[in-house]
Amino acid sequence: MLRLDTNKNKPDFSSTEIRDPLNRVHIDVSQQPKIRVRNLDFYYDENQTLKKINMDIYEKKVTAIIGPSGCGKSTFIRILNRMSDFAASSKVRGEISLERRDIFDPEFSPVELRKRVGMVFQKPNPFPKSIFENIAYGLRINGVKNSHEIEQRAVKSLKRAALYEEVKDRLKESALSLSGGQQQRLCIARCIAIEPEVILFDEPCASLDPISTAKIEELILELKKYYTIVIVTHNMQQALRVSDYTAFFLMGELIEFNETKKVFENPSDKRTEDYITGRFG
């Protein structure tokens, strides 16, 4: 991925208000955002898939990103931990800061960033290793050598991911023997074991049944106590149930970003209203 340098000045992170394209102030916060996105553009080849995104993500809150397929919501969260680096011939322009630190700074390695900003994917993707090894691997590559500590942290994260009771007697069995919902919770456990600050969920329930989905949603509400969460979802009811803030993306633009309640009850943009009432998408 190539980064275009638009301005030579250091990004200005002093302003605390967010303006939408019509220059209306959306959220006035005294709180410092965990992640701050300013004028973010993203290109695949010559196609601009994200246009001038400005958005703040708050600490220990759940931010939902909704929008129809192809609106750029997955592209957006994959930039937040620089997984987008692997997309060939893509370019990014604009600023993103994690606690005031520019994530594109050459001195801020993507490996370091991903330790702080974890990710759970659309399809559960446990490694074909044992349940225990799935978690231990992440700890080991992050420098935890002591096997006692690895065990402790694995158990703790399995408990926190509400999976421990179901798997405690078969930690040595293959992770692939678990059900889809359990696999996804294992992926969450694997992610939280390395104690990230932010967790990105990319449509985590897309391939799960309603019961597993309910469990994951419950879990997200619980995890909010410890982590900052960003969740991409197709399901508007899900956004309403789990999130504090909602961002509505359409064709690469951030149309509306506000407290979830306001977005759903009183959207300020006609397109948001059309989308959440099911007129398109």
Binding site: E112, R114, K115, N125, F127, P128, G138, I141, C191, I194
Partner: peptide, 26 residues
């Protein structure tokens, strides 16, 4: 599958750690 590489990289693994621990064994 690419998802294996992504899973490993998202945990903060370097490319080589991913190749050595995840890709080669498979």
């Amino acid at each position: 599958p690419q998802s294996m590489r992504e899973a490993s990289m998202a945990l903060g693994a370097t490319k080589w750690e991913t190749v050595w621990n995840i890709i080669l064994p498979q």
